[in-house]
């Protein structure tokens, strides 16, 4: 119990004094996850809408694959990225392994099925008259998509926030393809694992507290949005 209490006190000290190593890892975690989820949203939201609105032979299979993709272990995605970007892999010549960009790619793969599946569910649950009304009023395909996003905005926001929450706290991808290199690829999750392993319990605790705060903040926004939707 003393270990936890002392670790907690050390963590507060580090956070209050804006410890540069803690802030460096936090900033990197945030920009990598934001970029990965942003790209996943750009690709995933139109894809989720297409799957909900356009009928084609393999649609059910694609939806099933996306749903299965939500449960992919991060170490599995990590190993796939490693195979792609390692020296002998098909993307090896780009020499991106152990750079933040390959973590962005891995987290994009982690976030994409989540964004597609949740936004697909949200758009599919919309009243069919929403699409019909937009269509009969002369909306183009792009305007109809914007209308779907606006009508299902709570579901769409939930999709993006859930994906962000998963990406910012993931360890497997960042550890396997990032390599946990100081000032280059170290994220909050990898730094927490490293510092705790080194016996720097307070530092590890400080980083995990930031992760916890981010996850809690996102959860609170999700709860708030869900309540708002129930009230409407």
């Amino acid at each position: 119990m003393d270990l936890i209490w002392e670790g907690f006190q050390d963590a507060i000290q580090l956070l209050v004094h804006f410890d540069p190593t803690v802030l460096d890892a936090a900033a990197r975690s945030l920009w990598i996850s934001t970029l990965a989820v942003g790209l996943a949203a750009l690709a995933g939201l139109p894809l989720g809408t297409l799957l909900a609105r356009i009928s084609f032979p393999a649609r059910r299979f694609v939806v099933l694959v996306c749903r299965a993709g939500m449960a992919f272990p991060t170490v599995f995605i990590g190993i796939v990225c490693y195979a792609l970007f390692s020296r002998r892999g098909p993307l090896g010549p780009f020499e991106l392994l152990y750079t933040p960009w390959v973590i962005v790619f891995g987290e994009f793969l982690l976030a994409l099925p989540m964004v597609v599946s949740i936004s697909h569910g949200a758009v599919q649950a919309l009243d069919p008259r929403a699409g019909e009304t937009a269509w009969t009023l002369g909306a183009t395909a792009f305007r109809r998509w914007r209308t779907y996003m606006s009508e299902a905005r709570v579901g769409v926001t939930l999709a993006v926030l859930t994906a962000f929450s998963r990406c910012v706290t993931e360890l497997g991808i960042a550890m396997m393809v990032g390599g946990n290199i100081k000032s280059r690829t170290r994220t909050l999750a990898t730094a927490t694992a490293l510092e705790t392993g080194k016996g720097e319990f307070g530092r590890g605790m400080a980083m995990s507290l930031i992760l916890l705060a981010i996850a809690l903040g996102v959860t609170l926004v999700i709860v708030y949005l869900s309540r708002e939707e129930r009230h409407e």
Partner: peptide, 19 residues
């Protein structure tokens, strides 16, 4: 049973014109 988009009366009324 008409469907109205989320937003204001003005937003709904002008939807087709903007489209």
């Amino acid at each position: 049973s008409p469907y109205l988009f989320r937003g204001t009366v003005l937003f709904n009324a002008s939807y087709g014109l903007r489209a």
